[in-house]
Structure formats: structure tokens, C-alpha cells
Design a protein around this nucleic acid. Structure first.
Length: 574
DNA sequence: GCCGTTTTCGGCCCGACTGTTTTCAGTCG
């Protein structure tokens, strides 16, 4: 059983309890435990066997027992009982914006609304408005909301949200109404997917600014509008929230709205114990209500006796404890990146030629790039024959001769086949500067098979990097079944680099796994897997994910000087 | 249900906005 499955069951229990009207703290406990599981790389079955379930943050006696039951019997009696009382279809209902657990329960109890279709019908037939606590406005809003929900509003990729936020921020900053403005929320934390786009602005004329914001040309629909908060739906369907505060409140507001929720809860708990209170308007002494800070974010953290914590790691996964000890990692920066070790050219399935790719890389400040076209077995992607490889090498040599202070490496992306074999024999592999090996097929094979294939590639001394190690495509394909522990162990042992693929719908390895890889001594290569020159810019998202995985520059092979990189890989091959 | 350099019991983050109320519950982040 994988951790995600167990986490989903716990989340479901939380939702069911919420609808039942249970104490919000009990509900919260199940959600915290589910998140605890999601952050783990070790399989829950093994943790249970070794009796370490209760060591997982958020898991105590009660939930540990329920997880044990889940692992031995395949289900949890308590969960089954809850499903008897509350139809599980209500879980989908509370996904509809504006409909929470309380109202869902009322609709179910009084109108037997159990599904999205039921809700649509009930609102259309005007049976909702007469219920206690509801009204005609609520009915109308629910109708609108459920219709929108059926069209499917899901989380969007960071790479989609990012340019939109930049565009809106640009518009806002142009007006004299705005003193400063920034992205907040999961966008500022650069999570791989974003729910809503959260923006923050400082202004002396909030109402005028809200008028301006709600009338921007890209706004399709205004959901709420107040003098501190407005929400709109943009024409492309994304929800954008704008909060407005005064300049004196900006730091605390930015801290507050950046989250994560878990990080803020922990921080406010610490404040409370010090007799302080944090909200979006500042840091206050509780007894006197005297303002102690709030103009800058740094001030909030230093007032609580800790280092300023970078936004990207504010997830309450240990960063607060380290900040108190002033031992936060010095996170990798985009400027630390010296090259890109996995890009394609028009020799295989890329759009641009090698020269274009190199020129763009120079523009981005890189000093080397590895052209890793597909190898011959991946025929659908125009894989290279040995003759192609040698002809391509001649072009690379010629270009290198013309370039000053920049190096093009001759690389290849091999296909790891069902037996763990690679496209070319070992002797031929030695001719490449960089060898990436990736899985491109058999995603549904059992864990043993996939892991065996992967370990065979990692153990091959000619393989330098494992490309997109878990194979996930965000929103489309789950990661394939892999014994990640075994993979990390082997990679550390053989000095094989694991890729952090920066392609926005991959970001593979993901942040939690990257962090675990570092902890186990595995080096990471952050590559774009670019198929066009423009894609080289995706490095930004890979670096963000690396930062979320607490990586420092020395952990990342492509921050090293080329000589150091090549000698590291040579040592590995002996 | 979890958790403990004040606690093994009694806390558990905090506020805006909306709609339905006439002081507040529900939802959201």
C-alpha cells in the first residue's frame, strides 16, 4: 500500500467528520496526519513493521492504530462506519466553492442532496432558498458555483500561473494607487501547482485600487469586492485574489498571506507563547496591544527570535526549528546554475538546432550545455543511430571551436528497456560526455520490475544521470511504482546523479524527494529537458523545486565548474 | 486526535467577507 492511498483515507475521514459536525481540532488532526504521510519517502508498511508510525509528525496513538488496521485488514472499521452515516458522495459536494461541510449536511438532511447533480437540480428548482440559514442569494451563488465546478476548475501549473501574476502585478504597479505589490500564497512559495493566484498590494486608497483591479481587462467576473480583499475570475478561468493593506502593514501581510497555513499556525503558536500575537496587520504584544513590528517580513521573524525564513520552504517541515537555531540552509539560487545537462536538438525531437540552443544558453548566463538527443530505440522521438551520433559530434566540435568560454557537451538520453538494457553497448557509451538514462515505457509494470530496470541503469558506470526518475506528469500521469529508497541508496553508492527535471508538468524529482535524496548523499542535476530554445528558461521552476527541497548550491552538479563536474563523472566511471 | 522548557489535561491561529440575520454562522485562506 502506498503512502498516498493511506493519506487519502485519512483525508476522507477528516471530511466525513467535518460534515458530521465533529470538533474542528479532531478534523484537523486527521488532515495533519495525512500530510505527515505525504511528506515521507519511506513506505508506510515498513514504518509500521518497525513500529515507528507514532514517530511520524501528527500521528499519535489513535491514528497509528487505525493505520495498522488499514495495513493489515485493508480497511478501517471507523471509516466504514462513517461512510454508513454520511454518503461518500458528499465528499465531492464540499469541493464546490461556497459549499462547506455545514451547509452540505443541511442540504443532505433536508433535501437529500447527495451529489453534484442533486445540488444542481435543487438549486434550479428553488428548493434551497427556503432552508434555514440559506436564502435566495445563497441559492443563486450555489447554482453559479456548481455550474462552474462541473466545467472543471482544477489546480493550475506554476508555469501557467506565474506569467499571469506577473502581468497583473505589472498593471497594478503602473498605477499611482499602488505603493508596492507582490505575489503571495502558493505562487510565492512556488508550489508545483497553484489553486488561486494570491496578490498583495500596499495602497493609501484601497477602494480606488479595488475598483481599478476589478475593472482590469482580463477580469471576467467579480466574486467578492471589499476594501481589503477582492476576488475575481480571470478570462482564462483562474481565480485571482487581491489583498490591500497600508505600507506599515505590508511586511506582516506578506508574511501572513504567503503561508503556508501550517507554517503560520506554528509561528503564531510561538508568538502566543511569547505573549505576542501575529495577524496580517502586524506583530502585537497581547497585554498592551502595542505594535511590535509589521513593516517588514524580516522584522516578524527576528522579533520571534529566529532567522528570516525563505518563502519557498515555509511548509512547517522543520524550517522553524532550524531558524530558531540560526541553522537554515543557504538555499541554491538561480544564478548558481552554470549549465543544463539534458536538452534536445533538432537531431532528434527538438525544434531548434544545436547552435540556437547554445546561443540561448549563453543568453541565460550558462557556461555549458549537454545536447542529449534521444537514442535509437526511441524511434518515435527520432532516436539517433550511431552514424547520426558521430555526425552530430562533428557539428558539436565545429561549434565548440567557434564559441569562446562556452562548451557544448555531446550527450544522449538512453531508453531503459524492460530488461534494464540500454540502447548502445558500453564501449560506444564511453564516447559521450554525458549520458542520461530514462524510462519511457512500461509505466504500469509492478514495482519490482520497474525498480530492477532502474537499478540496472544506475549501476552502469557509463550512466551519469537518471532522467525524470519517477515519470510523473502533473495532472495526467501518476509516478510509476518504484522502490525509491532502493533507488536513492544505489544512486548514492554509485555516484549516479538523479535529475530534477524542470519541465513544468514534470518537476521530477518532486520537492520532498529531492530533500530526502540530499539527506542520503545523492547529487542532483537540475535540467530543463528543453525541446525548444525557449524551454531553457524552465530552469527557474526546477531551481524553485530544488529550493523547496532545501538544496544548497554544492548539492547540485550543474552549479559546479565544468572541470569539477567532468572529473566527478570520470571518478564514477572507474 | 495530538501534544507538552510552564501542561498527561486543556489547549489547539486569526480575520475578512457574505448572506441572513438583528448578532452571527459558514466559508475561505
Amino acid at each position: 500500500m502506498d503512502n498516498e492511498y493511506a493519506a487519502k483515507i485519512l483525508d476522507e475521514i477528516a471530511d466525513l467528520l467535518d460534515i458530521e459536525g465533529e470538533s474542528s481540532f479532531r478534523v484537523q488532526a486527521y488532515r495533519r496526519a495525512a500530510n505527515g504521510l505525504r511528506g515521507l519517502i519511506e513506505n508506510i508498511e515498513r514504518i509500521n513493521k518497525e513500529g515507528r508510525l507514532r514517530k511520524v509528525p501528527g500521528i499519535g496513538k489513535g491514528i497509528a492504530e487505525k493505520l495498522e488496521e488499514l495495513l493489515t485488514k485493508g480497511k478501517i472499521e471507523y471509516h466504514e462506519e462513517l461512510k454508513e452515516k454520511i454518503p461518500p458522495s458528499l465528499l465531492e459536494l464540499i469541493q464546490v466553492p461556497g459549499l462547506g461541510p455545514r451547509k452540505a449536511k443541511i442540504l443532505y438532511d433536508n433535501l437529500n442532496v447527495q451529489s453534484i447533480d442533486d445540488l444542481l437540480e435543487a438549486t434550479q428548482d428553488h428548493r434551497v432558498a427556503s432552508l434555514k440559514g440559506f436564502g435566495s442569494q445563497t441559492e443563486e451563488n450555489l447554482l453559479k458555483s456548481v455550474r462552474q465546478f462541473r466545467e472543471g476548475r482544477e489546480r493550475i501549473l506554476l508555469s501557467e500561473a506565474y506569467p499571469i501574476a506577473e502581468k497583473i502585478l505589472g498593471e497594478l504597479r503602473k498605477t499611482s494607487l499602488v505603493i508596492k505589490a507582490d505575489a503571495a500564497g502558493s505562487l510565492r512559495r512556488m508550489k508545483e501547482t497553484i489553486g488561486d493566484i494570491d496578490l498583495l498590494a500596499a495602497s493609501a486608497e484601497p477602494m480606488k485600487l479595488m475598483d481599478f483591479f476589478c475593472c482590469l481587462s482580463l477580469v471576467d467576473q467579480v466574486l467578492v469586492k471589499g476594501d481589503t480583499k477582492s476576488s475575481v475570475i480571470a478570462k482564462n478561468g483562474f481565480q485571482v485574489d487581491l489583498r490591500v493593506v497600508t505600507p506599515e502593514q505590508y511586511g506582516s501581510a506578506l508574511q501572513y498571506f504567503t503561508g503556508s497555513k501550517e507554517h503560520n499556525i506554528h509561528l503564531r503558536d510561538i508568538a502566543k507563547k511569547r505573549g505576542l500575537k501575529i495577524n496580517e496587520y502586524g506583530l502585537f504584544e497581547v497585554v498592551s496591544d502595542r505594535k511590535m513590528g509589521g513593516e517588514t517580513e524580516e522584522g516578524i521573524y527576528t522579533s520571534l527570535g529566529m532567522q528570516h525564513i525563505p518563502a519557498l520552504i515555509r511548509e512547517d517541515k522543520g524550517e522553524i526549528e532550524l531558524a530558531k537555531e540560526h541553522k537554515l540552509p543557504r538555499l541554491l539560487q538561480l544564478e548558481d546554475i552554470k549549465g543544463d545537462l539534458h536538452v534536445h536538438s533538432s537531431w532528434s525531437d527538438g525544434i531548434n538546432g544545436i547552435r540556437d540552443m547554445a546561443q540561448e544558453a549563453v543568453q541565460l548566463g550558462h557556461s555549458y550545455i549537454a545536447i542529449c538527443d534521444h537514442a535509437e530505440k526511441l524511434t518515435v522521438a527520432g532516436g539517433l543511430s550511431k552514424e547520426d551520433v558521430r555526425a552530430r559530434k562533428k557539428e558539436i566540435d565545429r561549434l565548440n571551436h567557434q564559441l569562446d568560454g562556452f562548451t557544448i557537451l555531446s550527450g544522449i538520453e538512453l531508453n531503459i528497456d524492460n530488461e534494464g538494457h540500454l540502447d548502445y553497448e558500453d564501449d560506444f557509451l564511453k564516447e559521450f560526455d554525458i549520458v542520461v538514462a530514462s524510462i519511457h515505457s512500461g509505466f504500469n509494470q509492478p514495482e519490482e520490475v520497474l525498480t530492477r530496470r532502474m537499478l540496472a541503469a544506475i549501476g552502469n558506470p557509463n550512466v551519469d544521470i537518471i532522467g525524470h526518475p519517477t515519470g510523473r506528469i502533473l495532472g495526467r500521469r501518476p509516478p510509476y511504482a518504484l522502490d525509491l529508497e532502493a533507488v536513492l541508496k544505489a544512486a548514492a553508492e554509485h555516484g549516479t546523479l538523479l535529475e530534477l527535471n524542470s519541465y513544468p508538468d514534470r518537476l521530477d524529482l518532486k520537492d520532498d524527494y529531492v530533500r530526502e535524496a540530499k539527506r542520503r548523499g545523492v547529487r542532483i542535476a537540475i535540467n530543463t529537458d528543453a525541446h525548444t530554445a525557449y524551454h531553457l528558461r524552465y530552469m527557474l521552476f526546477g531551481v524553485a523545486t530544488a529550493k523547496r527541497g532545501w538544496l544548497e548550491a554544492e548539492d547540485v552538479a550543474n552549479t559546479w565548474q565544468l572541470d569539477d563536474l567532468m572529473s566527478f563523472l570520470r571518478d564514477k566511471s572507474v
